[in-house]
Design a protein around this nucleic acid. Structure first.
Lengths: 259, 259
DNA sequence: TTATCATTTCCTAATTTTTAACAAATAATC
DNA sequence: GATTATTTGTTAAAAATTAGGAAATGATAA
């Protein structure tokens, strides 16, 4: 196997480009077939699935890094993004048994360098994103051999402290649901009342009324009717609705309380 | 002026004890004379007031560090603590004009060492705490020449990005107000209905009804009557109330939605 | 062309919650 | 024992929420 130069350079030269001791992990949520999904990736060197993550370039701020990492992995940008927590247990990322050194050597053509900047202790800053899953194109690269969506109730065992990170992301998402108009980036531009009701039911875990709940959103001015309808075969065609951009931005800026 | 050995050791040897590139800043809130206050301290080397902060010991986790820093500065522990955001703009802490090198040399007896671990770029993890101000005893030390409470509407100009950090802390506190029983550590063990109403009015910025709001908290089981009353002179003595510990802990764990 | 059907969406009454004003209770002082 | 200022309970009106059923709809089949 030929030596993979770019991979080797990442280990040995990466400290020049990236900030030391900091990583970013992203819980990227999507909504499909009435289920919440989360994007996981499989690093070639790590034996378990994990949240997509990466490092922060020296000239970047944290949010830019999170957005870059998410775009690299999904092809999408302009998502709803929020930082939710930073994880810093001592040695949280140093778990030797999670690394598959043999497989790495086989793929990369050289042994994992020991004691480089990458293998030092680092803290991880967690961001969550909500995306329209159907528009995403999960990407692999030299570090990630697999990348795909998992329904939230079928998450495999995750590496490092990523189960805790995902759980905190969900917790924050559920709180933010009451204060930010999260739906916009989880749904297509045009959606039916049933779809937005389903979305909120799944995120909140509560049963909502088929017309009372949409009426509340309409009453707030957050969503509004369009001219178009969806053809669903031999039934009444539901009207498409869209977010009112002005109200959406105001709620995003000022926050609101949804009950 | 004699050379201050412990101060010098902090600069030159600190990298052995503390994690690199990470600092903690704490927005410590208290409630006094119907106003929300925040604790600020004045570092001997920095020309502006700032939020109390510090570094993370290598064997510590982030929350332990935040608690240690808060206890050092206030003498209090067992406060309500939450991490709210991490700040990582490139070079956010490198602002030469904020450092008073002459004053430092005068006090310490040596020049500020350049290019030590302390003067490197670092990210800051923000924690907020809510405390019962009247029980606090703001402490100074070799780094901090002053430390005191400021009413939230009389905050002086702050160093670094601490105005942004404080503003984010307040924003998070106001959201958490709806989901966590924050009052417990802001109030004395026993308080009157008027006091808890005032607290929520100030934090939420909304006017609340003198009996309807307390009745809601009583209805939730969160607070309950005690046998004692406060003597306030020639008026009806208000009854002291206390938090129901069981309900409090459950709400803390499971969250709730206050409307 | 019309009847049928499943689904969306509107309507309305019942219920619950919130709000606001007022009255009662209270404890120290006059 | 009356007075006073404040706390706290009561109650009725207003508002919001909930739930169920009815109407509307668009495609299909008769």
């Amino acid at each position: 196997m030929e030596k993979n130069k770019s991979l080797e350079a990442f280990f040995t030269e990466g400290y020049k480009r990236f900030r030391d001791g900091i990583s970013i992990d992203c819980a990227i949520f999507g909504f499909h077939k009435e289920k919440l999904h989360v994007l996981l990736s499989k690093n070639i060197i790590i034996t378990r699935w994990a949240l997509p993550g990466g490092f922060v370039l020296k000239e970047e701020n944290l949010e830019q890094a999170a957005k870059r990492i998410t775009t690299e992995r999904t092809g999408m940008d302009e998502l709803f993004f929020r930082q939710f927590k930073t994880f810093g247990e001592p040695n949280r990322n140093i778990q030797k048994d999670l690394f598959d050194y043999n497989k790495f050597a086989e793929i990369a053509g050289f042994d994992v360098p020991q004691n480089t900047w990458m293998t030092q202790q680092s803290i991880s800053i967690g961001y969550y994103a909500v995306s329209n899953l159907s528009e995403s194109q999960p990407q692999i690269d030299i570090f990630n051999s697999e990348c795909k969506w998992f329904p939230i109730d079928e998450i495999p065992s995750l590496g490092f402290d990523h189960e805790e990170i995902l759980s905190e992301a969900l917790h924050t998402l559920k709180i933010h649901l009451y204060h930010y108009p999260i739906g916009q980036t989880l749904l297509p531009d045009k959606f039916t009342l049933k779809e937005i009701k389903n979305l909120y039911e799944i995120l909140s875990g509560k049963h909502l009324h088929a017309s009372n709940f949409p009426n509340k959103l309409i009453g707030l001015g957050l969503i509004e009717k369009t001219e178009e309808k969806r053809n669903i075969g031999a039934h009444r065609a539901p009207t498409f609705y869209k977010f009112n951009q002005e109200v959406y931005e105001q709620m995003l800026k000022e926050g609101f309380v949804l009950v």
